[in-house]
Design a protein around this nucleic acid. Structure first.
Length: 479
RNA sequence: GCCCCCAUCGUCCAGCGGCCUAGGACGCCUCCCUUUCAAGGAGGUAACACGGGUUCGAAUCCCGUUGGGGGUGCCA
């Protein structure tokens, strides 16, 4: 029986976790959970200059938020220097690496002189330099032959050694480089499947060469995931694209929606059912079926998936999530309890209308603020450009005033507004009330917006006094 | 420049030599339902990059072209 698969997610704490890394992390997680294997976490913080420890917290927090649980404690490369130095010493002893005192400038200058191809020219290969200050350790890439592997996603991939330069494995400071640490750690941690982004494809032969020189068997399989790209078909980047995972959380996207959507990028379930519970994704996901082409991160579809996930929630769960989101947004506790009460009274009406949890607050705000914020476009549309607005408001006020507090329920309110519509002339051919047009001014006067939850229910929840006050206030504004 | 990867509707995915006058999903459009907006229902729009092979037969296999992307750091 082959050993249980063991995979790893190895982020570098040089930025917030973004959706592209999340995509790779997810592939690892799905594979681990489905195969009964393990997912290890390794923080690749060998670059002391760019490394920002506080970002590790963000990465871990986001993985937890997404539900991408890992096994064991995270491993920090910054604490494993000895391992890499030992490996480097082995390389030197075996004649697989040599010291080099060329500066970046010198390397570049010579490349320019040579014309054409940039990169290191092997200048110090046979100089027999001893270790010392200003001297980096370079790997001696074989002059002929090629190194390749069978990629689970891409099939056969191979690189000729002639095209691989002698790369640095130890900086002149003695600090290990990514390639060395990465390969040594994967071996040390017993990684069986290396699942990562396509941006690592070109470094894989170096990784393999390193292990071979070290006399270590390579991982059983590699899978290079398609890159996530923007509308310009460029790799998603922190600078120009909206990629911070935390931002999506803060805007009210559900973790299960993000996970579900990310799984759909580069892969599709065999039965075509795209939005489904995470356990089903775990069961169905196949690395072998992942599409090698880059995939566009489409906010519209994410949004759709999110709306589906929100509607799939029980009303109680929806309320809890929306409340938690409001709280996380730093809403004042007093306001929060009012908002929660407001939401409780219109839960399903709101739930089926929002696409993100961030949409909840604007939809129910009119229920607990003293004066609803008036949306200019709505005012223009329903009040300024509406027909028989004054008549409609007057008739509605009169009709609702006639409604006693005991009858302040959706149906009686509907009756009053329908009657007002008829009075104001909003009738269809058969003489019955035409609510589609008539309700506009009332809705805007009371809620400040032309869209929102169903009107009669909203007014019932708002209460008689506040409803009438707002209607009168708007009526006064019209002179 | 060089190396590598990729190439089906606007987007994501299906298709793994005949079931394809290419299917599903998002988006967009139309209509229905309807108290706004959603949701829901019924339709519609829209693609095999190009050129050569192989084969009785190609979206599917091979080669080339073109296009796109990634890498090319003493970053990861």
């Amino acid at each position: 029986m082959p050993p249980a698969p063991r995979v790893r997610f190895a982020p570098s704490p040089t930025g917030f976790l973004h959706v592209g890394s999340g995509h790779s992390a997810l592939a690892n997680w799905l594979f681990a959970r489905q195969s009964g294997g393990e997912l290890l976490l390794r923080i690749e913080d060998t670059d002391a200059e760019r490394n920002r420890p506080e970002l590790v917290d963000n990465v871990l927090e986001m993985l937890e938020w997404l539900g991408l649980t890992w096994d064991g404690e995270p491993v920090y490369q910054s604490q494993r220097g000895d391992l890499y130095r030992d490996a480097a010493a082995k390389l030197v002893a075996g004649g697989h690496a040599y010291y080099c005192d060329c500066t970046a400038e010198q390397v570049q200058a010579r490349a320019k002189e040579r014309g054409g191809k940039p990169g290191y020219d092997g200048h110090c290969r046979d100089r027999g330099l001893e270790p010392g200050p200003g001297r980096a350790l370079r790997f001696r890439v074989p002059e002929s032959g090629a190194t390749g592997w069978v990629d689970l996603i891409r099939g056969d991939v191979a690189f000729e050694h002639a095209n691989i330069e002698d790369f640095v494995v130890l900086r002149s400071s003695g600090a290990p480089m990514f390639l060395l640490a990465n390969a040594v750690d994967d071996a040390d941690m017993g990684i069986t499947h290396v699942i990562r982004g396509e941006d690592h494809l070109n470094s894989t032969p170096k990784y393999l060469l390193l292990l071979q020189a070290l006399g270590i068997a390579p991982p059983g399989a590699f899978a290079h995931m398609p890159l996530l790209v923007n509308e310009q078909r460029k790799k998603l980047s922190k600078r120009r694209d909206d990629v911070s995972m935390a931002d999506y959380r803060d805007r009210g996207y559900l973790p299960e929606a993000m996970v579900n959507y990310l799984a759909l990028l580069g892969w599709g379930p065999p039965d075509g059912v795209e939005v489904r519970p995470i356990p089903e994704l775990v069961e169905l996901y196949r690395l072998e079926d992942v599409n090698p082409s880059p995939a566009f991160f489409d906010l519209k579809k994410l949004s759709y998936v999110n709306a589906e996930k929100i509607r799939a929630l029980s009303p109680e769960a929806f309320r809890a999530r929306a409340g938690a989101h409001l709280a996380a947004q730093g809403v004042d506790p007093a306001v929060l309890s009012e908002a929660s009460a407001a939401l409780a009274s219109l839960t399903t009406e709101v739930q089926e209308r929002v696409r993100t949890l961030g949409d909840v607050q604007p939809m129910i705000e009119f229920l607990y603020v003293d004066e609803p914020t008036m949306d200019d476009a709505s005012w223009q549309k329903a009040i300024v450009k509406g027909k028989a607005v004054v008549e409609m408001l007057d008739a509605t006020i009169a009709g609702l005033e006639a409604l006693g507090p005991d009858h302040w329920q959706p149906e009686p309110i509907r009756g009053a507004i329908e009657a007002a519509a008829v009075t104001a002339g909003h009738v269809s051919a058969d003489g019955t009330a035409q609510l589609s047009k008539a309700q506009g001014p009332v809705r805007v006067a009371v809620t400040g917006r032309s869209v929102g939850p169903p009107l009669f229910e909203s007014l019932a929840v708002l209460g008689r006094d506040r409803t009438l006050a707002r209607l009168r206030s708007t009526r006064r504004r019209l002179g």
